[in-house]
Each structure stands twice: as C-alpha cells, then as structure tokens.
C-alpha cells in the first residue's frame, strides 16, 4: 500500500506482475522506435517500403545504406564538425557559466532579475534572431565556419548551463569560504581552490547536457552552414527530396549520429538525473 505514498515497500505477487507488465510496456514503447532506426538502416529500399508487418523485423540485411552514406555524402566530415563544434562550445560555456553561476549563487547578483534575464534569452525565437546574425556573420566572414557556429552554440547553451550550475553552487556552504578567507585566501583563490573542486559533479552534469544540446542543435546549424562547417544533423535532415524521401541513408546516418548520445545516457545516467532536478534534490 505504500506504493502510492512513497512508491516503496514490499510488493506482493500480483503487484509484482503488474509492476513488470507496466515496466516492460514502457520500455517497449521507448525502445521500439529506436530499434526501428537501426533495423531500417540495414534494409534495402523494397523492405523499407514493404506493406507487411513481418518485414519490419524479418528481412535480408544489407549494408548498402551505409556504403552510400559514406561514398556519396560527406558523412564523416560532417560528423567531425559536430564533434569539434560541440566540444569546443561546451568548454567555453562551462567557463562562462560557472563564473556567472557562482556569482548568482553566492551574492544573488542582480537580485534574481539578472538570472531571469539570462534564462529569458532562450525565449527569443531563434529563427528571427537568425536574420540579424546572418547579416552580421556575412560582414564578419563567419558564415559556414566552425568558429562561427561554435559562437552561436555558446549563446544557445550558456543560459541553461548557468541555471543548471546555479543549483550546484547554491549547495556549497558559505562557512567553507569564510574559513578560507580567514586563512588569507583571496576571492579568486577561493573560487579556484575551494569552490570549483566541490562543484566538479555539477560541472560534469552541465558538460553532458551542453554536449548533447549542441550535438542535437538543428536550426542555427542548418541556417549558418553550407558545406565546410555543416554538422551531421543537417546532413540527416537533407534526405528529403521533392518526390521521394531516402529513408535508407537517413536511417543509417541517424543510427550513427545518435549512438554517442545513447552511450552518454547509458553511462552517465546518474549524473543526468542529478542534473535534471536542477539542484532541487540533493544527490
């Protein structure tokens, strides 16, 4: 009966069966579509457009889609762009956001309004912001460069990263810092030697989120790149012709592109869940 109080306690036989039926159902709903990507990636066009249910699972596998993807499209170049852009933007975001989050958490700088303004930057419709950026980027020669897109991803991620880190910085007891001050540490030293080591888990969480968000970002990546700096999500979105959709290479590309994020969610699950609560629950 404690099931609905705190979701804990012993389960009887019926409860157990009920528990596992629901759990398996939910897992099926989650995993089936993703499994379908991987199945489709190994299908020939005829099997992709088959109208029998059994062909969903039973078919003659082929690696043709991957061959086409690698041969006819710059898949690995684009993949490399994604890696470079997401890693470099994450590093910069972490620096900027941890400084700012510390300030917000320790001194409540700007009395909450500033923190809110930071977050509200993400409420501006990106599509409209894109046009002034496009003109600015043209003048600066930043169009279709990794550096230019990295800058945009920094802007894109920095506000939520700040907010995420804010929760972690808030947890550090002020007494620790006061003690350090008595020991003669300067403010900068306290930040570097006392505070930063303590929020390392928070930084790890934030890094994961920024990496994933940047990895998955589409709109800016699509508008601000052509060939040289194009990330992999844009390539995958492009398999849509006027009278045909090439699902084979699309699925093959997606299968590879989502692999790192799947691995991250598998191995970093504890950290991710910790981050999702935005510091409201102590880990």
């Amino acid at each position: 009966m404690e099931l609905i109080e705190r979701g804990e306690g012993e389960m009887n036989g019926v409860g157990n069966v009920f528990f596992w039926i629901i759990t398996f159902f939910v897992l099926f709903v989650i995993v089936a579509p993703l499994a379908w990507i991987y199945l489709t990636a190994f299908k020939a066009p005829n099997d992709i457009f088959a109208t029998e249910a059994k062909k969903l699972i039973f078919f003659q596998p082929t690696t043709e889609n991957f061959h086409r993807l690698f041969r006819e499209f710059p898949f690995w170049d684009n993949f490399l762009n994604t890696v470079i852009i997401s890693v470099s933007s994450t590093v910069v975001v972490l620096v900027i956001a941890s400084l700012a989050a510390y300030s917000f958490a320790r001194w409540n700088t700007g009395k909450g309004h500033l923190l809110f303004n930071t977050i509200s930057t993400r409420m501006f419709p990106g599509v409209v912001a894109a046009i002034p950026f496009f003109v600015m980027y043209r003048n600066l020669g930043l169009l279709d460069t990794r550096f230019g897109l990295t800058l945009l991803h920094i802007y894109f991620n920095v506000s939520f990263a700040t907010f995420l880190l804010y929760g972690f910085f808030k947890e550090i007891p002020e007494e620790l810092e006061q003690a350090a001050m008595i020991d003669g540490y300067s403010r900068a030293d306290i930040f570097r030697r006392v505070v930063l080591p303590l929020v390392r888990p928070g930084i790890a969480v934030t890094a994961v989120f920024c990496l994933v968000w940047s990895w998955n970002e589409f709109l800016f990546s699509f508008l601000f790149t052509r060939m040289a700096a194009r990330p992999v999500t844009v390539l995958i979105s492009s398999f849509w012709g006027s009278i045909e959709v090439q699902y084979g290479p699309m699925a093959a590309g997606a299968a590879i592109a989502i692999l790192p994020t799947l691995l991250v969610s598998w191995f970093m699950q504890r950290y991710i869940i910790r981050g999702l609560t935005f510091g409201a629950v102590k880990g």
């Binding site: 759990t23 939910v26 897992l27 989650i30 995993v31 579509p33 993703l34 379908w36 990507i37 489709t40 994933v212 990895w215 998955n216 589409f218 999500t233 995958i236 979105s237 849509w240 959709v245 699902y247 699309m250 997606a254 592109a257 989502i258 994020t261 799947l262 991250v264 969610s265 598998w266 699950q269 991710i272 869940i273």
Partner: peptide
C-alpha cells in the same frame, strides 16, 4: 537497465526523432 533505457528519448536529437516518427 530500466533507467538507462528510459533516458534515451531525452537525449536523441528532436529533429531526428521528428523524421523518424514521420515515417513510423
């Protein structure tokens, strides 16, 4: 295992998911 699997949808690119569901 349950937790790892159930986190998948959150981290997959929304754009890829929309293409996927469109066909599904």
């Amino acid at each position: 295992v349950v937790r790892g699997l159930a986190l998948f949808p959150l981290l997959v690119a929304p754009l890829i998911l929309s293409l996927l569901w469109n066909f599904m």
